[in-house]
Structures are given as C-alpha cells and as structure tokens.
Amino acid sequence: MSLEILGISVLWIFLYGYLIIASIDFGAGFFAFYGKISKRDHLINNLISRYLSPVWEVTNVFFVFFFVGLVGFFPDAAYYYGTALLLPGSVSLVLLVIRGSFYAFGNYGSKENSFYLFLYGATGLLIPAALSTALTISEGGFLKEKGSGVEFLAKELFTSPYSWSVVLLAIVSVLFISAAFLTYYADRAGDMPARDVLRKFTLFWSPPTILASFLVFASLHAHNPGHFSKAIQLWWMFGLSLLFFLIASYLILKKKNFGTAFIAVMLQFFFAFFGYGASHLPYILQPFVTVHESITNPTMGTALVVVFIAGLLLLIPSLLLLMKLFLFDADYVKGKK
C-alpha cells in the first residue's frame, strides 16, 4: 500500500472513531436536555451521566488526533483548509469550547443547572452540523483560488441543497447512533424504564436516517456527478450499509440483542463512511488537493506511521481497561459503584 493511501486510511479510521463516539456524546447531550424539558429526566439522565463522565475527554482527543494527523500527513490540505475556513472553523471551535467547558462546569460544578444543560444539548446538534460542512466543502465548488490565497464562497455554501442535505444527515445520524447506544447501555444496566424511553427514541430516528442518506445521494448527483458515479461503482458497500441498518432496526423493534443491534449500527456507518471516503479519492479537497500531491515527504510519513503503530500498542490496552471498568463492569453500569 502506498504511503498516501496508508496515511489517509489512518486518518479516516480516526474520523470514523470520532464519528461514533462523538455522536454518542452529542446525542446524549440532546437527549439529556430533551429529557429535562419533557420531564423524563429522572428516567434517563442519571444513566447518561454515568456513561459520559469518565469518557468525554477521550472523545475530544479523537478530534484533535484527526486534525493534527491531517497537518502531519497532508500539509497542503492544512494550507487550503486553514486559509479558507477561518470563520466557519472558528464557529465550530467556539461551539466545541462551550460544550466541553460547560459540560465540566455543569457536571462537576453546579448540578442541576438548566442553562448549562441547554447549552450542552444545543451544541450537541450544532457541532455536527458545523463540522459536516468541512466534508461538504471537500466536494468542491465552495472555494475560489485568487491571487495569493483562497477565498471561501459562503453564499454558495448556504444556498446549496447538497450542503443542507449533509447537515440534515449529520444531525439525524447523531441522534440515531446515540439512541441506539444508550438503549444498549440502559439494557445492560437493567434499567427498563430508561431502556424503553431510549428504545422509542431509536425507533423514532431510524427512518429519518435512511431518508436523509438517500437525500444526500440525490443531491450529490446534482452537485458532483463525478463523485456520484464513483460511489455507484462501490454500490456493494452502500448495500451492506443498508443491510446492517435493517438488521439494527429489526432487532431494536423486536426488543432483542441490543448489543448486536448497536454493532450493526456501527457497521452501517462503517460501510457508508468508507464507501464515501473511497469514492472521494484521490481528492482531499476538490479540485485543489489530492492525496498524491499533498502527501508529506517519505521520511516524515514513515516516522508518523511508526509512531502511529507504537501509539496504538500503548492505547489499545488502555482503552480496553477503560471499557472494562466503565462499560462492561455490570456493577458500575448499574450504579452500584
């Protein structure tokens, strides 16, 4: 495998990791807030907080990892994105800052503050919307090269149907992934009232997820026919994604195997996300940056890969320990520890 494909695969895997665990986190924020205003917080909010408290910082690191890795493996991509995305990037940053700090303030500082909870819930939906525009921009048509730099065409972005369909997909996916995971977590905790509320959330968000996916496909066809036809060549990946979606929804509907159901959700997004990524290649940012031209020098690339492998050897056992203590320890999940 060439260095650039290896590099982009590493980054894509991390982005996928972020997609899953950040979705759980973002959606949980929304459900916690929704639970409060619909007076069901006594049912679900404890459960959500038991899961989130020990892991929120880990979530953020996934994101940091992605953009540091992007600068490392593909410095040119950082140049284009950096120049163009100052304002939209800063908006995402401000939202991330509000979310992270207010989570800590609310959770460790003053309990039961509805305003903190509101910010936490609202940013949970706004951040995926804001971050997903980076993927939209990568499709091309929203940046213009001029003189000494690149210019961001904000108006085009805000009026593009493709851009809005991606935002929609991001939001409903977050809610679906999160609800599916929390249903499983509640089931493990033996917390039936919470499980039933969350299961209903999952079922509620399941059809919109698949509708939004089709919408994205349709608008991609209009916006970037080249990418669309490459995606069609990888039809089997999207087919597998659909299949796992059906399995997950079926299991949750039938109230069984919530663990398997969540794995199916993960696979659903895995195939869709990698199908999307693979058909996007060789471009990182159309038409300015391809993986082949922007890849860093081979010495640095090799060094990064070596560090990456060494890092994984260190992290995987640690992550397993974290999961063993907080996710798979029945007593902790049930609130007895």
Partner: peptide, 19 residues
C-alpha cells in the same frame, strides 16, 4: 509534525487514565 502527532498520543494516554 512528528512531535505534534506524538503529543496527541500523550494526551490520549493521559485522558484515559485521568478518567
């Protein structure tokens, strides 16, 4: 970018054990 990349691993390691 090598040390920046390594820094992220250090954060990661810290974040897990701090949790």
């Amino acid at each position: 970018s090598l040390p920046l990349f390594m820094e992220t691993f250090a954060f990661f390691f810290e974040a897990i054990f701090l949790g």
